[in-house]
Design a binder for these strands. Structure first.
Lengths: 225, 225
DNA sequence: AGCCCCTCTCAGCCGGCTCTCAGGAGCGGC
DNA sequence: GCCGCTCCTGAGAGCCGGCTGAGAGGGGCT
């Protein structure tokens, strides 16, 4: 679940990013309209949080550009209370939801989840590979009939692998999309989390669904191991 | 994921090639417009990174030639800042995206990924020669119905030969593209790995798909041996 | 404040992949 | 038949990639 936050107030942006990450989203931040537009065009996001008041190019303009270019990623607009900008215009332009600052963080999360769920109706609500089932909206996972509790990070990693069933997904890909585009830490973290996942969804069930493709990355097989 | 980089500044070309390889792309480099055009015409690329300022034949010309000949591989143009060349012209000619030098490497990667995603929505087909099957995305190989486990190097070598079915591929070509452009070690390594491959995909099945072309290199025949 | 859990770092271990080397086999030329 | 060159192959060393346990840091909840 990848989210782009376009917000120039650094403190707010950082707080939102931190919070969303804790909720299991992968978050990119853009500090102005231009970079925001750029990222939105070339990244693959489940949703975009877009401030209206932005230096350079307003949230309006960014949104219009996006829709003009046939990018239909769900957009949640952020507005200040003063009402200089009209939220109705934004909705006309193709925004999917909005929030007035200041807002409780949990509301943001709830709306985002709703957006993501709505925004891709053609996508099945649940991911299934063999007897592995993932419900991204509910954030729950099952192996057969037994539910398996996963942490946010574990869940994001498993979701990512399951969305690309059959493909060998490179470690750098995983780092970029489950962690952060500019993740600077030890790439070993991926191995660590693969290990956690295996101990939760494989070992107790005598399975082996996550295969290591040495020198390349990891793969979940359609057969399900 | 195969990418062609057409760039005359050797340092930049090498740096880009190295970086992209680390990101999991297979990279070919051409140092001038003519060889660039040649490769683009006869190679099978997911995307092309094309500098505009090139000796011999400019990136413009290369792009025009390509499009004239109905080659629609996504092209990302590189321009220097001075603006002697107009990027609008390039886009008119059928470029898909552009970057102004100098650029952050991550941006290049992101744009390339976006290009590849847009440009080839259907999953890249499997490579098939007789009953030999290779799935580059999944990184798996089969002889008939039985899967054959290959190491990263073996896989790259076989993929390379299969992409040039029927051609005799020279040892130096293989060294440059499967190993490294500036590979310094013993060229005998190719023979060694051909041996490994034969023992995995041929010997157990009583086949002989990799033929030695003495004094030239190796060839996989369309008939499949 | 105290506790717990999640996340991430670090270091050590292990297996096997990659590569080197050298001797032998095969092929072609004379 | 002999010689030279190319290719093949077995053995083995080194190294790298991946796995794991231990533990620190931090945030949230009680």
């Amino acid at each position: 679940m990848r989210v782009l936050v376009v917000e120039d107030e650094r403190n707010l942006a950082a707080a939102v990013a931190r919070g969303l990450r804790a909720e299991g989203f992968a978050v990119d931040v853009a500090g102005d309209g231009l970079t925001g537009l750029d990222r939105a065009l070339y990244g693959e996001y489940s949703a975009i949080v877009l401030d209206i008041m932005l230096p350079g190019r307003s949230g309006y303009d960014v949104l219009r550009d996006l829709r003009d270019r046939k990018v239909w990623t769900p957009v949640l607009m952020l507005t200040a209370k003063d009402g200089e900008y009209d939220i109705a215009d934004a909705l006309d332009l193709g925004a999917d939801d909005y929030l007035t600052k200041p807002f409780p963080f949990v509301v943001l999360v709830a709306r985002l989840r709703a957006l993501v769920r709505r925004g891709s109706p053609e996508r099945p609500a649940r991911l299934t590979v063999a007897d592995l089932v993932l419900d991204p909206a509910a954030h729950r996972a099952w192996r057969g009939d037994t539910e398996v509790p996963l942490t946010a990070r574990e869940f994001a990693l498993l979701e990512h692998l399951m969305r690309r069933v059959g493909d060998a997904v490179s470690k750098s890909d995983l780092l970029a999309e489950v962690w952060d585009e500019n993740f600077a830490g030890d790439p070993n973290i991926v191995e660590v989390y693969i290990g956690y996942l295996r101990r939760k969804i494989d070992a107790p069930f005598g399975r082996r669904s996550i295969e290591t493709v040495r020198g390349v990355g990891y793969r979940i097989d359609a057969a399900g191991g």
